[in-house]
Computed example of a mutant assay.
Amino acid sequence: MHLHLLQHSPHHGPARLADWLTSMGHSYTIFHLDAGELPPRLADCDALVVLDGPMGSADDAEHPWLRRERKLVEQALDGSKPLLGIGLGAKLIASALGAVVSAGTFAETGWHRIDLAPDSPFDLPEQFDAFMWHRDVFGLPDDSQPLGGSAASPVQGFAWDAGRVVGLLCHLEATPDSVTALLDHQAPPAGCDTSPHTQPRDAMLDEPKRFDLLAPLLDRVLSQWLRSVPA
């Protein structure tokens, strides 16, 4: 399969997602929308991935290319190809499906436990730790199934259209390098100074094994996602 990846910041890249695609024999092209590249044509790929970014999902005044990206997301939802959103990408998908996207009560950064929803369709453990970097959250779109939630964010993800469309607020693709890039170059989400759900830099990076434990979780989600559409 050939996938198109939409990137919104040099510090919010695909991280382990790119390694997984290559290891599974898939090819991909990254489109840097923040650098002025136009969104691709959906017809030229087999699946679409919308990555995270530091902007809000409705920050059109500062990022006018978001309007074109939203149209592409809507086309993908109306089509039959797999669509995956992470962070900002999940917010764009949730909004296109009619869910409310807004600032959460607390910012959430670092490692936090997710409890799998009882009716979750995801092939994941009942509890697992994932990396977080957000303040905005979204509601569960109509006709979708929940991933589960953390203490600060009740909806950490969803699946829609029998798993063809997946949105993830959490970051299963995180690596030490990708988190270091965020910490070195990206301002933390608003509200981190007063949130009880944020962590200092050392707590995010001092246990490399946490990143290793994300790898099989990402593999499960991506494998299940790409199997959702018959070849």
Rank of each mutant, 00 (worst) to 15 (best):
Q75C: 06
K209E: 11
D161P: 08
P118W: 02
L147P: 02
V73R: 05
D136C: 01
V73P: 04
S228N: 12
G36F: 10
G89W: 06
L21S: 02
S223D: 07
V166C: 02
L42R: 09
R135S: 05
M24C: 04
P146S: 01
A231E: 10
V100I: 08
P154S: 03
R210F: 01
T180I: 00
H32K: 10
L168T: 02
A76T: 11
I114A: 00
G89Y: 05
A174I: 01
H4M: 15
H171I: 15
S120G: 02
A231V: 13
R210I: 02
S9C: 14
I86V: 13
L51V: 12
G191C: 02
P39H: 06
R16I: 05
L169D: 00
T29A: 12
D78H: 10
P176W: 04
V165H: 08
V221L: 07
R164P: 02
G191L: 01
D161Q: 15
Q145R: 15
L182E: 03
D52S: 10
A90T: 02
R68Y: 11
D136L: 01
L213V: 12
T175A: 05
E74D: 11
H12T: 11
Q75H: 10
G163Q: 10
I93T: 06
P196R: 04
L183Y: 00
A190H: 07
V73S: 00
S95A: 14
A90I: 03
D46M: 03
V101L: 00
L3A: 13
I86S: 08
S9V: 14
A96G: 09
P54H: 03
G87I: 12
A215H: 07
T105I: 12
A35R: 15
L168E: 04
L97M: 15
L5W: 12
A103M: 08
S144A: 15
A47I: 08
L226I: 15
A190K: 09
A43T: 05
Q75N: 08
S150D: 01
G53Q: 06
I114V: 12
M55K: 01
D143K: 11
P189Q: 00
V137G: 04
D46T: 06
D119S: 11
R135Q: 06
L205S: 00
S27I: 01
V179H: 03
W20N: 06
S80F: 08
P188W: 00
P10M: 13
E74F: 07
D206S: 09
I114Y: 00
A130I: 07
A130F: 03
R220W: 08
F131R: 04
R227S: 14
A151F: 10
P216N: 09
P176R: 07
W111E: 09
S223V: 05
A187Q: 07
Q186A: 14
R227Y: 11
L214M: 07
L182V: 01
A47S: 14
F128I: 12
S57E: 14
L217F: 14
H112I: 03
H26L: 03
V49N: 07
L226D: 14
L42F: 06
V221H: 15
D212M: 10
P200D: 04
G79D: 08
R164N: 07
M1I: 09
P82C: 14
V137P: 00
G148R: 00
L124V: 09
A130W: 03
A190R: 09
M204I: 03
A99D: 04
V229S: 08
G89H: 06
